[in-house]
Design a protein around this nucleic acid. Sequence first.
DNA 1: CACGTTTGCGTTCATAGAGTTCACGGCTGA
DNA 2: TCAGCCGTGAACTCTATGAACGCAAACGTG
Lengths: 238, 238
Amino acid sequence: MTRAATIDVLVVEDDPVAAEAHALHVSRAPGFRTVGTAHSATQALRFLENARAAGRPVDLTLLDLHLPDGHGLQLCRTLRAAGHGTDIIAVTSARELTTVRQAVSAGVVQYLLKPFAAATLHERLDRYARYRASLARTGEATGQDEVDQAFAVLRTSERSTLPKGLSAPTLEAVATVLQHADGSLSAAAAGVRAGVSRITARRYLEHLVDTGLAVREPRYGQVGRPELCYRARNMSGS
Amino acid sequence: MTRAATIDVLVVEDDPVAAEAHALHVSRAPGFRTVGTAHSATQALRFLENARAAGRPVDLTLLDLHLPDGHGLQLCRTLRAAGHGTDIIAVTSARELTTVRQAVSAGVVQYLLKPFAAATLHERLDRYARYRASLARTGEATGQDEVDQAFAVLRTSERSTLPKGLSAPTLEAVATVLQHADGSLSAAAAGVRAGVSRITARRYLEHLVDTGLAVREPRYGQVGRPELCYRARNMSGS
DNA sequence: CACGTTTGCGTTCATAGAGTTCACGGCTGA
DNA sequence: TCAGCCGTGAACTCTATGAACGCAAACGTG
């Protein structure tokens, strides 16, 4: 590869704790390096300007769309207008479909919904690295196929392998229920909301605990065995 | 079949003959309408401004990157900075990989190399229509899956020929059954209605999911493994 | 402080549908 | 006519789910 081996990443995230976590995960991915974190659009813009001026433009920006001083997509547009070429992965809890659409037109390469497992972030980064590698070769595309291939690598989703006995849609459903619940939920309550049995809900909740996306907390006070509740561990500050 | 609300297209192309040809092809695609052509960046910008001011913003722009008064990607950035949401298909003979990369970061939804067959343009337009339909539903994404699906529909390149093992008439039959069913169908039910086995029905339903024409949704509640149901994705913008 | 009560956890297992493999029959081209 | 390929479906294995049930943990009462 003619390119610099490492991909320089800027993490833009409102919540300092989440920012730290993201930065750590990025640095752990082979070939990636976190070169900075920013907690606001202003900081992010300044960082990118400085990096570019220093001749080390940021390759990839992990961008939370919810920022204290403006919307992330607005920052995207500002960046593009200023000629910044940094690729952007939107990392956000914004689930509105119109936002997704706007993100695409603003030139976001991927759109990652919070909360996500560390493995998911890794998979996306790996995918981005492959996309980049496929276009790093200087020169010209041999044909439409090669262009299509680059797009496909970037955009096709690769199902991460789940433990036996678990299915992706159910996991999605349970995770969503847990995220949208304010406070914590018992397995039974989560089951009802997700439309599955307590047993199934518990299975997936335990998986979420295993992967670090949820935490268990017993709830005492009532007569009988304490109720075991689950709470989404928020990777977002929003 | 009730068609989607029409998608308004602006053709931006330096060469008047090619512009005419593109406009014609676009108008022939069901659901698409050419609302104008422009032969320069200035004209294009003016047209988009006027259309937006008139309350009929252009949905999609077919943009040649080589324009007499500037580069198409620069026009992209200008548009984004001005808050234009029009989606853009780059139509160009520029084969440089760096240009492809820049196009992605400028928010181009597809990148079509000239010269191309009319069928190729059609396929891309159809794909864009599906992407649009998948995000037209107001509301929120149920999860990462749905977002990924939208990206995949947009970016996966589709061979005009069906995958091995599938036949056009059967696909037609299964698709029709699914369209006419109110609500969702299990593979078995679809098979019965289409007059094929569950296995065959499943094959074609999966293909429909891959191409973004259908969605899967598990149905819980009964004892035993959950039933996996398929639902035709609504192509009409409500 | 010990013991019963109460409540929900956690496990085991039957079940029904998913998903895969492979053999058959028909069509096509030589 | 024969050879090869392609779409189909039967048989089979696998997997995700929920019902049943015993057990664990905290509270209440003496």
